[in-house]
């Protein structure tokens, strides 16, 4: 009996270790997107990510046709990078690859999920059940409605049944005159009125640089970065 008991105790101590799941959630800041640019020779790779809030204005699961259409439009818009993140004309850059997708909490940055994403694919359905739907979400963000910049950072819990979504896009560009890539215009802010800020990180052979662009100053000066 005592042996069984001790075995049980042993099993109990083991249980949390066995069922241990990874609980990691990315920081999520409404109004702020990120754009990483890596430049090597005449190749430019860009990775873009922004909260669903910035792009379509909501982060709940799209159930209405209207919301679905919004997401589809956004994904389509994100698939043409030159209209959002425009490099200097003189650099003569052309897009060789572009894909954009909507990620929900569960698959957020899941490597395998990423590979499955395709330009033609609409979006991934959120696996969360959203009973409260929009109302719940609005409540959560009620506090920042008066602010100009929605800069509330959420550290949130799986249990709360709140979800965040993010749009993600990856681009590959070829530039005929990469040395003339001195400026990046961001009509992105015109296309997505909820977007307030874009953190741009540039990595080249000359090192790495970070910039912040916002609605009032929608350009990045790339001189001296490569």
């Amino acid at each position: 009996m005592s042996r069984v008991a001790s075995l049980c105790a042993f099993a109990l101590t083991l249980a949390p270790a066995v069922s241990a799941e990874t609980r990691q959630i990315d920081a999520h800041e409404h109004g702020t997107g990120s754009l990483n640019i890596a430049i090597e020779d005449n190749l430019v790779v860009m990775e873009f990510e922004a909260p669903g809030h910035d792009i379509v204005g909501f982060e709940y699961e799209a159930t209405s046709d209207e919301d679905r259409a919004k997401i589809e439009q956004a994904v389509a818009a994100l698939a043409s990078p030159l209209a959002l993140f425009a490099p200097s004309e003189a650099a003569r850059c052309t897009v060789t690859e572009a894909r954009a997708s909507l990620l929900t909490d569960q698959e957020h940055h899941d490597e395998d999920g990423r590979d499955a994403h395709d330009k033609d694919e609409d979006h991934h359905e959120d696996e969360h059940a959203h009973d409260e739907g929009e109302d719940h979400h609005e409540d959560e963000h009620a506090h920042d409605e008066g602010e100009d910049h929605h800069e509330d950072e959420h550290a949130h819990d799986e249990d709360q049944d709140s979800s965040h979504t993010a749009f993600e896009a990856a681009y590959r560009l070829t530039c005929d005159n990469p040395e003339k890539l001195t400026r990046l215009e961001l009509p992105y802010f015109q296309s997505f009125p909820n977007a307030e800020k874009l953190v741009v990180q540039v990595a080249t052979d000359a090192g790495a640089h970070a910039f912040e662009a916002d609605r009032d100053a929608p350009t990045v000066d790339l001189r001296g970065t490569h």
Partner: peptide
């Protein structure tokens, strides 16, 4: 390749088995 630096950074930052951080030295310095 320089083009993969952000991809690798992301892979490390989101490595599920252990909470790790990868930084680009220049950006951290900035």
């Amino acid at each position: 390749s320089r083009l993969q630096v952000f991809k690798l950074q992301r892979a490390i930052n989101e490595y599920p088995e252990e909470p790790l951080l990868a930084i680009l030295p220049g950006l951290a310095l900035q």
